[in-house]
Design a protein around this nucleic acid. Structure first.
Lengths: 184, 184
DNA sequence: CAAAATACTTACTTACCAGTAAGTAAGCAA
DNA sequence: TTGCTTACTTACTGGTAAGTAAGTATTTTG
């Protein structure tokens, strides 16, 4: 990936999180980077190509993160995931899933697949994290790890959405509660 | 409200839930109703006016519902709220908050206020429901009722989003877990 | 050194969007 | 029956959207 390509994806990522996929245009990317919209089309012929690159970038960061967290105890691993979301909250972002899921029906099949893959990858990781954490007595919860993981992800996702509407402390109230529930 | 006005709001409601506020146009409303887009502008001069009418309609339904649920025990009242969301899930809808929150930064101040009011009204009701339910020993949970209510709402909201990406049973897995947690 | 690939710009197209101005048919009201 | 209101239609505007074709400067490569 070239420098410009990186800049475009990074800006698109921010725009998707702040304005939503259908509310930003190539102009919103071209202007700040001081190029013409055709330059953006050169790197990403269609908006769906750009969207898929953004999702792919997020997936790569996620995989890199969980790899680095591996030596940590499970409760701390999950805490790191919460930290990622907390940073997004303070930056005024929502998560990619939270932004793209409402627009899901308007996305190309290619993008839908990428979004769906992302959801499954995160769910799988949280499920394993919870399952292992329970075995090591670091987490305590009823029901299956998979169901509990859905609950955790769903909370992380919409706490960012609610924080946007009701203020940033909404995120902290939800995530604190959630972590406390799991630890006791 | 005239018949046509009702039809427009009802169609707009569906479009917001399925495609998102920024992804539907006046044409999407005018065509199925077999009128011209100017007719829609006649009833709702700007798209924000239409959006606010949709939110107001949802608020009215919500107020009407909770009024009707009042005689029920609190756990059943909350169950009814879950039923409303479940029906949306099966209809392929997300909730209004789930759809409008990601687009929040692109909304007019007037719409932002309506969305914010809606969020607070729902939070207030769920908080009271949980608080009263706990006093009557029908709910059991740690922490404040307000924080717990945030968790409940956040789960309802994003379970609809996740259901869209991962399939409808996602909603049931999350909501079942959530209700069981509260009852025991 | 020539050819080819890279990374754009210029200039454009097609399509759609929200919104509006002006007109009209039907109904009601004094 | 005249005037006013309601509920539209017709016809349009200005703006913006995604996307493209053709050209150009720069770098890379055989």
């Amino acid at each position: 990936m070239t420098v410009m390509k990186d800049k475009i994806v990074s800006l698109a990522d921010k725009l998707i999180r702040v304005k939503g996929f259908n509310a930003f245009s190539y102009k919103d990317i071209a202007d700040p980077l001081e190029v013409k919209n055709a330059a953006v089309h050169y790197h990403f012929p269609s908006k769906a190509d750009l969207g898929m690159a953004v999702v792919a970038g997020e997936m790569e960061r996620f995989r890199h993160n969980v790899q680095q967290w591996k030596p940590l105890p499970e409760d701390e691993q999950l805490g790191r995931l919460f930290d990622v979301f907390r940073k997004h909250c303070y930056a005024g972002n929502v998560c990619l899933m939270g932004s793209l899921a409402p627009d899901y029906e308007t996305l190309t099949p290619g993008m839908q697949e990428k979004v769906s893959d992302m959801a499954e990858a995160i769910l799988e990781w949280v499920t394993d994290c919870l399952e292992n954490g329970r075995q090591h007595k670091r987490f305590h919860f009823k029901g299956s790890a998979g169901d509990r993981a859905l609950l955790v992800i769903s909370n992380l996702q919409s706490s960012l959405l609610m924080a946007r509407v009701m203020g940033t402390d909404t995120f902290d109230r939800i995530s604190r509660q959630l972590l406390e529930d799991l630890r006791s």
